[in-house]
Write a protein that binds this DNA or RNA. Structure first.
Lengths: 194, 194
DNA sequence: ATGAAAACAGACTGTATGGTCTGTTTTGTG
DNA sequence: CACAAAACAGACCATACAGTCTGTTTTCAT
């Protein structure tokens, strides 16, 4: 609808800006995400930046969507390649990355920012839908209700571990925690003890 | 060491400032925590504010310690009153509160702020220690390693649910998730289905 | 009571920020 | 090749911010 008359050069700079925004967010946090830093990192002028993103929040949201799309792609690819058995490991690896934790900064900030909240919701829902099927394969036969508990708990666990990882780094413990969750639902993890 | 020669009036205003800081953080988020707002909410001048907290981060950290202490007190009281059986419910209730989620904003922001990280670590460790004993009572006999997995997983789960609660509100699902975690370790929850 | 130190008051400053605005260049189209 | 619209350039601005500084008042030990 809006990308209809978008030119190739524009797409390239847009990409540069988004990549730079992610880079800044990862390096300086959400609080340190400023237009100045983004335009410098992207090698782009203020005019170009504001032309593509008319407000800071718009840029922030676009940046999160950007990484979310990349992560969704990674996950999908991993499932296609290795099957659902390795899904958990991939999810754990992805959610441990600074980009994901940076995204969580936006997530919690959305508590007091309705527009941000509205912008973030679709991505979160989509991830849930994307995981439903491979998780079902992983865990065998489960009624819908139990599956929802399993999936939601898994994602919550991953989020909580990602937050926890900021203050301490204990990957082996995290793997044990995940294995326990899977075990509770009769699924085997491929997570070897670290 | 520093509270030695502190006068009673000073303690009162310090309390006002901290309460106001929490109020502002809850209402406007970490990004919206400004000295202007705090001094207005506290009914205190800039001079008083800076006299007690010489930097913004110092105030933020003190505010988080302030709520952490209050929460620790609540948890301890709940355990003393109702026993470890209701511990989970209390923890869930506490971590669902806006004050806790606001604290998580600081937590994730600490990723790119070493001083903040250093300031937050003690509180997190202390909570873990505080919960070890009642959780052990709750779950029966468990070797140290399994207990650590149980406790860390529980806290991670609660954190993740708290973050998730920003975008959606499904308390019943959350309770089911927690019940599943407890069940995996042979503990019974008192959580009735909502 | 008194004097020194702590507590508070409030004006002030330098700076960084998001956003705007006017122009210039590049692109696609007829 | 013309020409309109999109893309970009970069100076500019109002504002809000954290932190400082100089005074005044309150507290408390003596």
């Amino acid at each position: 609808m809006e990308a209809a008359r978008r030119q190739s050069r524009a797409l390239r700079t847009r990409e540069q800006i988004l990549a730079a925004a992610v880079e800044v967010m990862v390096g300086h946090g959400y609080a340190g995400l400023t237009m100045q830093r983004v335009q410098t990192a992207a090698g782009v002028t203020r005019g170009a930046l504001t032309h593509h993103f008319s407000s800071m929040r718009e840029l922030a949201v676009a940046a999160v969507d950007y990484v979310a799309a990349a992560q969704a792609g990674e996950i999908e690819a991993a499932v296609a390649d290795a099957g659902p058995a390795e899904l958990i490991e991939v999810l754990h690896e992805v959610t441990r990355r600074p980009t994901y934790v940076a995204g969580l900064e936006l997530w919690v900030a959305a508590r007091t920012d309705p527009e941000l909240r509205a912008a973030l919701r679709p991505g979160a829902r989509q991830l849930g839908r994307q995981l439903r099927e491979p998780l079902l394969l992983l865990v065998g036969d489960l009624d819908d209700e139990r599956l929802e508990v399993f999936a939601d708990g898994l994602l919550s666990l991953l989020r909580g571990l990602a937050v926890g990882g900021v203050l301490r780094d204990r990957p082996a413990l995290e793997k044990a925690v995940l294995a326990a969750w899977l075990g509770a639902f009769g699924a085997q993890a491929t997570t070897g003890a670290g």
